[in-house]
Amino acid sequence: NQASVVANQLIPINTALTLVMMRSEVVTPVGIPAEDIPRLVSMQVNRAVPLGTTLMPDMVRGYA
């Protein structure tokens, strides 16, 4: 089972991601792999991401 990136807090739209906003968790469906967390830092979300939501590739500008 692969860990995915999950929002550690509410992340408002257009917010640049920081390490404290994300955690890794084994979830279904699988989202962005946890090993990509360092790559996600400073990328912006293109929608509001509620606490506990799995980050999907289409939620992060420039990721996919």
Results as ranks from 00 to 15, higher is better:
residue 1 N to R: 06
residue 1 N to E: 11
residue 1 N to H: 12
residue 1 N to F: 13
residue 2 Q to T: 11
residue 2 Q to D: 14
residue 2 Q to S: 07
residue 2 Q to L: 15
residue 2 Q to I: 14
residue 4 S to P: 00
residue 4 S to N: 01
residue 4 S to I: 01
residue 4 S to F: 03
residue 5 V to Y: 01
residue 5 V to S: 03
residue 5 V to L: 04
residue 5 V to G: 02
residue 5 V to I: 12
residue 6 V to K: 04
residue 7 A to M: 05
residue 7 A to L: 04
residue 7 A to I: 08
residue 7 A to E: 02
residue 8 N to R: 11
residue 8 N to F: 06
residue 8 N to Q: 10
residue 9 Q to S: 09
residue 9 Q to T: 15
residue 10 L to H: 11
residue 10 L to W: 13
residue 10 L to Q: 15
residue 11 I to T: 01
residue 12 P to G: 06
residue 12 P to Q: 11
residue 13 I to G: 08
residue 14 N to V: 03
residue 15 T to R: 06
residue 15 T to H: 08
residue 15 T to A: 15
residue 16 A to F: 10
residue 17 L to R: 00
residue 17 L to S: 00
residue 17 L to Q: 00
residue 17 L to D: 00
residue 18 T to A: 10
residue 18 T to Y: 03
residue 20 V to R: 07
residue 20 V to N: 13
residue 21 M to T: 03
residue 21 M to C: 03
residue 21 M to D: 06
residue 22 M to E: 00
residue 23 R to I: 09
residue 23 R to S: 13
residue 23 R to E: 05
residue 23 R to D: 06
residue 24 S to P: 07
residue 24 S to C: 04
residue 24 S to Y: 09
residue 26 V to E: 07
residue 27 V to W: 02
residue 27 V to P: 01
residue 27 V to F: 02
residue 27 V to I: 11
residue 27 V to H: 04
residue 28 T to D: 12
residue 28 T to E: 11
residue 30 V to E: 05
residue 30 V to H: 14
residue 30 V to F: 11
residue 31 G to A: 04
residue 31 G to E: 00
residue 32 I to G: 01
residue 32 I to L: 06
residue 32 I to Q: 01
residue 32 I to H: 00
residue 33 P to H: 12
residue 33 P to F: 07
residue 33 P to T: 13
residue 34 A to V: 15
residue 34 A to F: 08
residue 34 A to H: 11
residue 35 E to D: 08
residue 35 E to K: 12
residue 35 E to V: 09
residue 37 I to G: 05
residue 37 I to R: 08
residue 38 P to F: 14
residue 38 P to C: 04
residue 38 P to T: 15
residue 38 P to D: 15
residue 39 R to A: 09
residue 39 R to E: 07
residue 39 R to L: 09
residue 39 R to C: 03
residue 39 R to K: 15
residue 40 L to R: 00
residue 41 V to N: 05
residue 41 V to W: 04
residue 41 V to F: 06
residue 42 S to Q: 06
residue 42 S to W: 08
residue 42 S to D: 09
residue 42 S to F: 12
residue 44 Q to I: 14
residue 44 Q to A: 08
residue 44 Q to F: 08
residue 45 V to G: 01
residue 45 V to E: 01
residue 46 N to E: 09
residue 46 N to V: 15
residue 47 R to Y: 13
residue 47 R to C: 03
residue 47 R to Q: 09
residue 48 A to H: 08
residue 49 V to A: 08
residue 49 V to T: 07
residue 50 P to Y: 08
residue 50 P to S: 12
residue 51 L to A: 12
residue 51 L to N: 15
residue 52 G to V: 02
residue 52 G to Y: 05
residue 53 T to N: 08
residue 53 T to K: 13
residue 53 T to Q: 08
residue 54 T to F: 02
residue 55 L to Y: 00
residue 55 L to N: 00
residue 55 L to K: 01
residue 55 L to W: 01
residue 56 M to H: 07
residue 56 M to P: 01
residue 57 P to Y: 10
residue 57 P to Q: 05
residue 57 P to S: 15
residue 58 D to V: 09
residue 59 M to E: 03
residue 59 M to I: 05
residue 59 M to G: 03
residue 59 M to C: 03
residue 60 V to E: 01
residue 60 V to S: 01
residue 61 R to W: 10
residue 61 R to N: 12
residue 61 R to Q: 13
residue 64 A to F: 04
residue 64 A to V: 12
residue 64 A to C: 04
residue 64 A to I: 13
